[in-house]
Design a protein around this nucleic acid. Structure first.
Lengths: 108, 108
DNA sequence: GAGAGTGATATGTTTTTATATATAATTTTT
DNA sequence: AAAAATTATATATAAAAACATATCACTCTC
């Protein structure tokens, strides 16, 4: 598994966890079987672009290609975005995932 | 074909052309058949992540996922990068594709 | 208009994702 | 430690990409 792939799959997993989704829940939302999500995250399959985009979208991520020379700048933006776990100045950001969960929730 | 897909495929085609590669040449460099590259560019196939990464790499592009809220900033970076067709202040940028080609070149 | 280069189409085969489903293994919670 | 939730594996099937190869249509140049 090459570096870029690892990066992307890692981002997917991190985003899922940051949103407080289990693989099952992401499965329910995306229609992709949990077993397949597991394989995806562990790099056992070379997933298709449409699947990647669909999963990313559910996790509030977007897929891109960028010129190599812009990579450092972009990574910097992403990094500082991830560093900002809901500081006061937030905009239309996603609701923070709770540190613990009192009741089970079933939206969707 | 959704918006993100279109964006990405468009970027691939643009980058290929900016580098002065024909589909045949990209095929030779990547090992992906020209016929398949044609289908990819016209959105006839839902290509795999590894293929996407491989093609992107040959075109000096890199694949990413980024948090949705960072998208405008990132697009802005990419835009200005593309706007700068070799202005004087360049760094380690790729050699400019020539406006015309005298001889055929075969590196690789 | 012949020849060369380019991109799109066509066909048949192989490989692999994606799906469905079940269950095992692991981690977390009570 | 028992129960519950989460993730990893396994198997079988269907669908689609990837591949190899050939050819067609189009444009451009000589």
């Amino acid at each position: 598994m090459n570096y870029v792939t690892e990066q992307i799959l890692g981002s997917l997993r991190d985003a899922r966890i940051r949103k407080g989704f289990s693989q099952r829940e992401l499965s329910a939302r995306s229609g992709v079987p949990q077993s397949h999500i597991s394989k995806i995250e562990s790099g056992d399959v070379d997933l298709r672009m449409s699947s990647l985009i669909a999963l990313a979208r559910l996790l509030d991520l977007e897929l891109f290609v960028a010129p190599r020379k812009t990579v450092p700048a972009i990574k910097s933006i992403i990094r500082s975005s991830n560093a900002t776990h809901n500081n006061g100045l937030s905009d239309e950001s996603e609701p923070m995932s709770p540190a613990y969960q009192l009741e089970e929730y079933d939206d969707d």
